[in-house]
């Protein structure tokens, strides 16, 4: 599905990613964990076309999409739920979802997607007329995911979906992520600081540290890895 090879990104003189490679297979949930500032968000932004790459390849369904503008990448079936959710706070819930389907013309299909999003997140249906800025953090995260689903993606990237959300809602949202992956067969690349949760729902994981991948393995194995345990899982 997605394969990135030797990805390098600079912010001016600072190297953010020093050549990372990773792969997400069709139908998979893969997670990228690491501390603050390790380059997780940068990786996603580079893949979805928000950042210019220094070098490296982003192969999406066999095609190199490196340095393609973000709005064109969406057309290929890739959707990115950015860090901090970035819902359109000045638009209603319904308008946010409609914008998610911006590139689609098939009214029927859009309605089906809308129904699906409402079935996954019934809260959004109740609040569809409400302005998104008035939603709680958890509801905004649901909306951000729902909006990303409206383009009917084949590949979904989620950046810190647990950030700043009530613990009870975090659990719900992670269950929904698994549900979306199973029901729609959408491949998922998940970036998380909450390594415990991320490794629980993913099949494979990568550990990022200061712009480098230092470890990669089956998620189940990573959870037992002493290095990961002490650094990211809060155990010794």
């Amino acid at each position: 599905m997605l394969e990135i090879k030797n990805l390098k990104v600079n912010y001016g003189a600072i190297t953010a990613l020093q050549g990372i490679s990773l792969e997400v297979k069709q139908g998979d949930i893969v997670t990228l964990i690491g501390a603050n500032g390790a380059g997780k968000t940068t990786t996603l932004r580079a893949i979805s076309g928000l950042l210019k790459l220094q070098s490296g390849e982003v192969l999406y369904q066999g095609r190199n999409i490196a340095n393609m503008p973000a709005h064109q990448i969406v057309k290929l079936g890739m959707s990115h739920v950015p860090e901090g959710r970035m819902v359109f706070a000045n638009l209603t819930v319904l308008e946010n979802l409609q914008m998610g389907a911006y590139l689609r013309k098939d009214k029927k299909g859009i309605q089906q997607e809308m129904d699906y999003v409402f079935s996954v997140f019934p809260r959004l249906k109740e609040r569809q007329k409400q302005v998104a800025g008035t939603l709680s953090g958890g509801e905004q995260q649901m909306l951000a995911i729902g909006r990303a689903l409206m383009s009917k993606p084949k590949f979904l990237m989620l950046d810190e979906p647990s950030l700043g959300i009530a613990p009870l809602l975090v659990k719900t949202i992670f269950e929904k992520i698994v549900e979306i992956n199973k029901q729609q067969g959408i491949s998922i690349l998940l970036v998380e600081q909450n390594a415990n949760l991320a490794l629980e729902i993913s099949r494979y994981g990568y550990v990022l540290e200061t712009g480098r991948i230092i470890l990669q393995d089956q998620s189940a194995a990573l959870r037992q890895n002493p290095q990961v345990k002490s650094a990211y899982l809060g155990g010794g």
Binding site: P82, M86, F88, E95, Q98, Y102, A148
Partner: peptide
């Protein structure tokens, strides 16, 4: 028009839903 409001609020998020700014 809705896209205009979306770009006005957050151009990055707008490009992530496929809006050509």
């Amino acid at each position: 028009g809705t896209a205009m409001r979306a770009v006005s609020f957050n151009p990055t998020a707008a490009s992530l839903v496929g809006i050509n700014n």
